[in-house]
């Protein structure tokens, strides 16, 4: 096991934890959604690092699935949420 890879995975996880703040503070809905997208990208990076750190090649497939499906939530957001009620400060009255 390579400890340097694990260390960098830890640092990337830390950046995810910091990025959660943008979900709380994000003024528009798009900011929040882009944070989730960013988490997907960081998740791919963490998985690639862990796959060499834990010496497990299956994690590359998990990273592939992450990268394939990360765009799906954003696309739904654009088509379904941003399309008809976005472009302003977004606060659902529910």
């Amino acid at each position: 096991m390579n400890w340097l890879h694990t260390l960098f995975a830890l640092i990337l996880l830390l950046t995810i934890a910091v990025g959660v703040i943008r979900i709380f503070k994000g003024p528009t809905a798009a900011d929040r959604m882009m944070t989730a997208q960013l988490f997907g990208t960081s998740g791919v990076a963490i998985l690639l690092l862990l796959s060499t750190g834990m010496n497990n090649l299956v994690l590359l497939d998990v990273a592939l699935v992450f990268a394939l499906l990360a765009a799906l939530a954003t696309l739904t957001f654009i088509r379904r949420t941003w399309h008809d009620s976005g472009r302003r400060k977004h606060d659902y009255p529910l």
Binding site: V58, D61, V62, V65, L68, L69, L72, L75, T76, R79
Partner: peptide, 21 residues
């Protein structure tokens, strides 16, 4: 290795969602 019907089916479902959306 890791994988199987559920994972493959989930990805296929995601492709369907992509077309539906």
């Amino acid at each position: 290795l890791a994988g199987g019907a559920f994972q493959g089916g989930a990805i296929l479902g995601a492709a369907g969602v992509l077309i539906l959306v």
